[in-house]
């Protein structure tokens, strides 16, 4: 299978029926970033009304005010429901689903949110899409039937099966022992793609393995 690396934009969207993952280049001037985001949101509006929005960041973090502005803007422009980051803090139960979901137009499954790293010997098997805050360590396994978002590194196994077209994997560093999406084994291709220590979204369509990345390494991502 052909490998396509897509890396030309400062903002990248990757949608699925449960939400949308937005990567933002944080080096961008804030005004510019907002403008670009509005443009993108307008363009994609028909896809993204009434979905969960999740904000978290890496490297340079947007400050409270900047985040607030983005949240307000996104809320005004769309009908996003916002997955609040406070839901993701450690004192909360380890595994929760998002109560912030609207009973909206979509009949998709809410995200399974896991607030810890998966360690060797741990295995999670779910039909839900997953947001995992932490790493997937060597020897750990995550099986899902939906998109998988890992805020840390993937060094263990991620297996997405029976997930349909929209399935993707996001990670801030892909060094998987095994990675497969709908029975397509991606581990090999990812090894070929040397730059996998950068944040990337990986998905497949009919004839290619696509790797979506920002122009710059620095980003803020949202879902």
């Amino acid at each position: 299978m052909q490998i396509k690396v897509i890396q030309e934009d400062d903002i990248q969207f990757k949608g699925c029926s449960s939400g949308i993952l937005i990567l933002i280049n944080q080096d961008l001037d804030f005004e510019k970033l907002i403008k670009k985001l509005i443009q993108k949101l307008k363009k994609e509006k028909k896809f993204i009304s009434d979905m969960d929005l999740f904000i978290k960041g890496k490297d340079r973090f947007l400050d409270q005010d900047e985040l607030g502005m983005i949240r307000k803007m996104v809320r005004d422009k769309t009908k996003f429901s916002i997955l609040n980051a406070s839901q993701l803090e450690p004192e909360l139960p380890d595994i929760t689903t998002s109560p912030a979901r609207n009973k909206g137009l979509l009949s998709s499954q809410p995200f399974l949110i896991i607030n810890h790293s998966l360690r060797a010997g741990e295995e999670i098997n779910t039909t839900s899409p997953v947001i995992l805050h932490g790493d997937i360590n060597p020897g750990a396994i995550l099986k899902s039937s939906g998109p998988v978002i890992v805020t840390g590194k993937i060094k263990g196994d991620v297996i997405i099966q029976n997930a349909g077209e929209g399935a993707f994997v996001y990670s801030s560093g892909l060094q998987p022992n095994r990675l497969s999406i709908n029975s397509i084994d991606l581990s090999g291709s990812i090894l070929i793609e040397s730059d996998m220590l950068n944040a990337s979204i990986v998905y497949c369509n009919q004839n290619a393995i696509n790797i979506l990345r920002l122009k710059e390494d620095k980003w803020e991502k949202q879902l």
């Binding site: 978290k56 409270q64 609040n84």
Partner: peptide, 14 residues
């Protein structure tokens, strides 16, 4: 670890 730093940096509060 990197991850601890990431966790600390959740700035969004309801």
């Amino acid at each position: 670890s990197l991850w601890n730093k990431v966790k600390k940096s959740f700035t969004l509060k309801k």
